[in-house]
Every structure is written in C-alpha cells, then in structure tokens.
Amino acid sequence: MNRRLRIGLLVVAGLIAAIIVAALVAMYAVLQPERFTALLQSQARASGLELSLANPASPTLWPKPSLELEGITLHGNGGNAPLIVAARGKLVLPWRTLLGGEATISRLEIEGARIDVDAVSAYLDTLPPRPSTAGAILPAIDAGFRVSRSTLLRGNRLLLSNVDIDAGRLANQHRFTLSIDASTADEAPYALDLATTPSLADGVLTLGDLDVDVVGKDRFSAKLHGDATWRGGADIGGSMAGRVTRTDAPPYDVVLGVTPANQQDPLSIALKIDGEQDHADLHLPPLALSDWWAGMQAGRPPTLPPVQGTIDATQVDVGSVHIKGLRVRATPGSPTPASTAAAPARSP
C-alpha cells in the first residue's frame, strides 16, 4: 500500500470517528435524558402516580431516537403495592427532537411487566368520582404504547401470562387500534383486536366504525362490527352484529345491543345467537351480573345469574364442564331461571 493511499484511509477513518463522536455528543446534549425522564414522571404525577427508575435513562439513535429505561416501578400516591413493575422500557422520540424540537414522546414500550389488578383497582378507587350528570370524556393519549412479555396478577395469583398489548394514538377523529394477546392461567391463548374512530362532541362520545375480533386459538373466532355511544355515567348505547366461527361446530350469527339506563331500568345488554342447532335470546344486566359474580367469588351460596330470556343449546362447554341438551326459560316474573338441562358432566 503506497503512502498516499494510507494517508487517505487515515483521513477517512478520522472523519468517521469524528462523526461518531459528534453524534454521541449531540445525542446526549440534544436528547437530554433527564428532561424526558422528568417529563414522563410529571405526566405520571399529574395522574396521581409515582414513577421511579432503577438507573438513569440512556439514549440511543438507532433505529429511532429513544431512551432506554431500566427497572421501572409505578406506584399510586400513598399506595404500598406497585401497580406495575417492569424490567425494561423505551421512550421512542420523534426525529425533530434532535433539532431541538419540543420534548414529546411518540411511543412508549415496556417489556417484562408485572401488572397487579388489585393495586390498579385500589388506585382507581382514589380518583375523585365524576358527577352523574357529567358528559362523556375522551382521555387523549398522544403516544402509542406497547407492552410485551408481561403478566397480569391479582396479588400472587396469576390471571394472564404472555401478555402483549399494542395500542396506537388515541385522539378525537383519529382511527384508534388496539391489539391484545394473552394466555389464561391454564395456558389457553386468546387474542383481541379492536379498531374504531372516536368522536367527542357536546359531551357525547361516539365509537364509530367499531370492529372487534376475538380469537381463541384452535377453538373459535368472533368478528363483530357496529358502533357505540357514551353520554356519561351509565348512559351507554350500542349495536353490533357479526359471526362466531367454531372449530368443531357450526358457526352462528350474533346480534348485540346495549340499552342505556333510565329512571326505571338499569343498563341492559341484549344478546341474540342463531345457529343451526343453538339459539339464545337473552337480556343481561351487567351491574347485577357483576354483583352476582362478586358474591360467588366471596363464597356466597351459589345461585343462578340474573339473566332473562331463552336458551336452546344441544351442547355447552365451559372449561371442564360439559352440558348436553340445555334449555332455559327465564321470565321477568321468575328471577331464577328454570332449566331442563342434562346434568353437567366434567370432561376427562
């Protein structure tokens, strides 16, 4: 190699090294990890939460400007048990940040999180109640977020594992998407995909062009389309229709309607199912169902759920319970439904 070529290579190597050093200096000087950490903590504090990190955030430029987070813990103000504990996280930043633009976050990613349902419920109980006459709201989320390889717990009891949540930006008149994948405690995998265009005007929130897809791997898939409205409080209405496809049984059509509460009647859900051999026409009061389920969980004497309507099914499988020839007639005058179903038999 002649002397001129060696000098040229040294000059190129020097330029590359200078560019790398300059990029690193710019990354720390412009990104300023402490200001974005403070931004995230201030946003959490505004919601009554306290965010802490095990180590200071570290910046990176590839594939996008971002800050790597380690040892994330999120507490409610005054709460003992953390709501969320995550091994790692990332704040993805817009490229304009490198040019000294506004400190904004375009995406939040969390990996290996443990989410405690009891702690989250306790935090929600501390929030001030909204007046019953208040209209609907749309909590804007400027940044999309991703939660991966996480678990959902109730205290020390596992509810869901392998939780993966991917959500886009939530804003008025902007198409919002949400995907959730998880496995139950018995390792049955499920997936939920939701897409809608929310619109908030004069205290009324409309979820237009609402698509909901639910899949139980190797068992069933459900696709529903419709819309929903919320005017505040229990004033919720909606209508959806679609089809449920089952792996080992014929499909059936589903129509779902939600009637808002009024001075005489509570919030009600009407569910109609029509298949080749299975039919159901039910009215479900969600608040009464919630109280019934809470009582069952608390060890109250078992009772049938507060459901009105009719069910005719050749076969019903719920977990390990297998029922053949189910027939139910529940009228408003008889809160305890009458059933002529065959005795339940546990599947092997």
Rank of each mutant, 00 (worst) to 15 (best):
L24V: 02
D118T: 12
L210Y: 02
A298Y: 03
V11A: 15
D118Y: 09
D253Y: 01
G299F: 00
I84H: 01
Y28D: 13
V11N: 12
S347F: 03
D202L: 08
S183R: 05
I137R: 13
I180W: 01
D227L: 10
V147G: 04
V85T: 10
R154D: 05
D193L: 09
P94M: 06
R219E: 14
M1Y: 03
L69P: 00
L200G: 01
L31S: 05
P344W: 04
A241F: 00
D253P: 08
G237R: 01
G208Q: 07
R169T: 14
A249E: 05
S334P: 04
A26Q: 13
D125W: 01
S268A: 12
D181Q: 07
P305C: 00
D186F: 05
P189C: 08
R114F: 10
G275E: 05
A81I: 13
A191R: 12
P65M: 13
V212K: 06
V147Y: 07
A270K: 09
T197I: 13
A294T: 09
T206V: 09
V147P: 09
V92L: 14
D265I: 00
I236D: 01
V21C: 08
R243Y: 05
T247L: 12
V117K: 14
Y28R: 14
T314F: 01
N262C: 07
Y123F: 10
K217P: 02
L207H: 02
D317F: 06
H283E: 13
A345M: 03
A26D: 11
R149G: 10
L289K: 03
V12P: 00
D274Q: 13
S58G: 09
L326P: 04
S334E: 13
L224Q: 02
G14F: 06
H225W: 01
P251L: 05
T104M: 10
G295D: 15
L91R: 04
T206S: 14
K64P: 06
R96A: 15
E102S: 12
R346Y: 11
E68S: 15
G155N: 06
P65W: 09
L51V: 08
A81D: 14
T133D: 13
D209P: 10
A288Q: 15
V21K: 03
V255M: 05
D202M: 05
T247E: 14
D211M: 13
V318H: 02
P260S: 06
L289H: 00
P65K: 09
A22S: 15
L205P: 00
A143K: 01
I137N: 13
S199Q: 07
V12Q: 02
K64T: 15
V204L: 12
A249W: 00
A341T: 03
L200N: 02
P94K: 00
A17E: 04
R346M: 11
L127V: 06
F36P: 00
R88Y: 08
Q32M: 05
Y252H: 07
I20H: 04
P94Y: 06
P285M: 06
D274I: 12
G319A: 07
A54K: 10
I236S: 02
V318M: 07
D125R: 06
S199N: 14
S334N: 15
A345N: 02
N80W: 03
G8K: 11
R3Y: 09
T259K: 11
T303N: 00
G238Q: 04
A185V: 14
